[in-house]
């Protein structure tokens, strides 16, 4: 007996069946669709009098009690792992790139000496309860975070790659906010230690921000490639 092949209209019904169950990202849907369609085709070949809806239900039951979720869960885990790998790869690249190392040294020295200068000269902002240089640095970081929001690819078109990549290393700003030293200091030793901490945190922020930016760019590239391959990106078309 000839094997049944699904028509584009039938495939559309399959897509809608998957979509209705909450698997809406095109990347996830495409991962599920082929396996599901093959199962449905086999069902229709084995039992020619079966209608498409019944074949879909039978095929879906065979996926087990978690249905399509097992495929999505696995895809989530490994896509996230991929972007984590990209992220740490970028961190390594930054640490061995001469230009970035130079930038890190410049940032470290500038923050260290400006913090020391602010503490020693007594530039203390009593309104914000921190020294003025640390206020400026925190302001600069807030600006960078805003620029990141504007410049980084948004997830308006529900890109699965970008949404997963965004879950890798979020909250770097809050780490900066929590650990960046700003309180009033008296003894010279305290001033040296806290200036060193401020320099290290600033360098850390530079590294993670740049790595995060490059990782999101990779995610965007993956999404563009997916879109280019699958021109019909609307899951229901």
């Amino acid at each position: 007996m000839d094997k049944v092949k699904l028509t584009p209209e039938q495939l559309k019904e399959l897509k809608y069946f998957i979509y209705k169950r909450g698997f809406r990202e095109p990347e996830v849907m495409m991962e599920i669709l082929d396996h599901f369609a093959c199962k449905v085709e086999d069902k229709l070949t084995e039992k020619p009098d079966l209608d498409l809806q019944a074949a879909m239900k039978e095929a879906h039951t065979e996926f087990g009690y978690s249905g399509f979720y097992s495929i999505k869960a696995s895809l989530d885990v490994f896509t996230r792992r991929r972007y984590k790998r990209v992220y740490w790869g970028e961190v390594k690249k930054i640490l061995i790139s001469p230009l970035n190392v130079l930038m890190l040294v410049v940032i470290g020295i500038c923050v260290y000496f400006s913090m020391q200068w602010a503490y020693i000269a007594g530039f203390y902002d009593s309104y914000f309860d921190r020294n003025i240089v640390s206020s400026f640095i925190i302001l600069a970081v807030v600006c960078i975070e805003l620029i990141k929001l504007i410049v980084l690819p948004k997830n308006n078109d529900k890109s699965y790659h970008i949404s997963i990549a965004n879950t890798v290393n979020y909250g770097s700003f809050f780490l900066f906010w929590l650990f960046f030293p700003s309180r009033k200091l008296q003894s010279p030793n305290q001033i040296v230690v806290f200036s060193v901490i401020a320099a290290i945190i600033s360098m850390y922020y530079y590294i993670i921000t740049l790595a995060h930016y490059k990782m999101i760019k990779t995610a965007q590239k993956d999404y563009e490639e997916f879109k280019a391959f699958n021109q019909n990106e609307n899951p229901l078309q």
Partner: peptide, 14 residues
């Protein structure tokens, strides 16, 4: 089962 196959495939790919 799909629940076993796809995690194995994704892991092997990774």
């Amino acid at each position: 089962t799909e629940a076993a196959l796809y995690p194995a495939l994704h892991k092997m790919e990774a």
